[in-house]
């Protein structure tokens, strides 16, 4: 993989406080969408802020396209776009004014046609002369994205981009992120919404207590750590599980009205035919059989729970 971001032994300690980031090392591949998942205070924003230069690092190194973000900050930062979590915008400035400022700050010559393209893509062109204070929350978030894209970044950091936005805008945002990826932009997003990561990310990094618990391809992760469950709804409740079924790993649930069987998604022999045969031989009748697959959220909760214990 060609790494666009390389983090080496990154540690961040705020003044007099506990460690926010503990010796992190990882790489982000060019062109991928990576989601940073973690509970509040896990270190997601600290990590992004340190890479982008908003906070100083206590130890370690970060490289963006090979440029050290400290010693070669001009080259490194010019490749980065950042969409912060909060709606931080100057209320009296116009959309066009604030987006143009961003482009200039990142050392790019004015390019009205490029800015127009971004504003049209984000449905902001009609609002270009409107003061920010007159825009809705969703529109303001789009303005933040337009600002981050104004200097044609190669990597875009989105810090909880869909926090507090409605479902339609969230779906719009996901489409935009996919489009940007097609244009060759690497996307790093932090999110509380695990369905968001499941929907759009190529890789998942789980952060907890300043450490990366895992960083892995989303599909492989779900296959490796995901579970499937067979649910059997019985026609008549039973009080005790016959030994034959117990030996197959089946459990009673719903006060004897149903059976559950959990199996690994990776194994080829699921054991389901044997279970159905055992039910028949024991004379247990059932009304319905269905399977459920664990979501990324289930995996995430399990990981965090294990860690907390």
């Amino acid at each position: 993989m060609t790494a666009i971001v390389e983090v080496r032994d990154l540690t961040k300690r705020y003044d007099g406080e506990k460690l926010a980031l503990k010796n992190l090392s990882f790489k982000i591949a060019a062109g991928e969408i990576i989601a940073l998942l973690g509970p509040n205070g896990a270190g997601k924003t600290s990590l992004i802020s340190t890479i982008c230069g908003l906070t100083t690092m206590s130890q370690g190194k970060v490289f963006v396209s090979g440029f050290d973000v400290q010693s070669d900050y001009r080259n490194a930062r010019s490749l980065i776009g950042l969409v912060p979590q909060e709606l931080m915008l100057e209320p009296f400035e116009t959309v066009m004014g604030t987006v143009s400022l961003s482009r200039g700050l990142f050392g790019k010559a004015p390019n009205p046609s490029y800015i127009r393209g971004i504003l049209e893509r984000l449905s902001l062109w009609d609002k270009r002369d409107s003061p920010i204070r007159e825009l809705s929350g969703g529109m303001k978030r789009r303005v933040l994205i337009a600002k981050a894209l104004s200097h044609e970044p190669k990597i875009l950091f989105l810090d909880e981009p869909t926090a507090g936005v409605d479902v339609d805008l969230r779906r719009d945002m996901w489409r935009l992120v996919k489009d940007l990826q097609r244009d060759g932009v690497t996307i790093v997003l932090t999110t509380h919404y695990i369905e968001e990561a499941e929907e759009i990310a190529d890789r998942i990094a789980v952060i907890h207590d300043g450490q990366i618990l895992l960083i892995e391809d989303k599909n492989l992760l779900m296959k490796r750590l995901g579970k499937k469950q067979l649910l059997v709804e019985l026609a008549d409740p039973i009080e005790r599980l016959p030994k034959l079924l117990e030996d197959l790993g089946i459990k009673l649930h719903n006060e004897g009205r149903g059976l559950t069987y959990t199996y690994d998604m990776e194994v080829e022999q699921t054991g389901i035919p044997e279970i159905l045969g055992a039910l028949k031989s024991e004379g247990i009748r059932f009304n319905d059989v269905r399977t459920e697959q664990s979501s990324l959220e289930d995996i995430f909760i399990e990981l965090i729970k294990d860690r907390s214990v």
Binding site: Y73, E86, M88, L89, G107
Partner: peptide, 13 residues
Amino acid sequence: LGTIYEHLSAPIS
């Protein structure tokens, strides 16, 4: 306003 984040993350001396 918090908009200083942009100056701190931009390639400016």
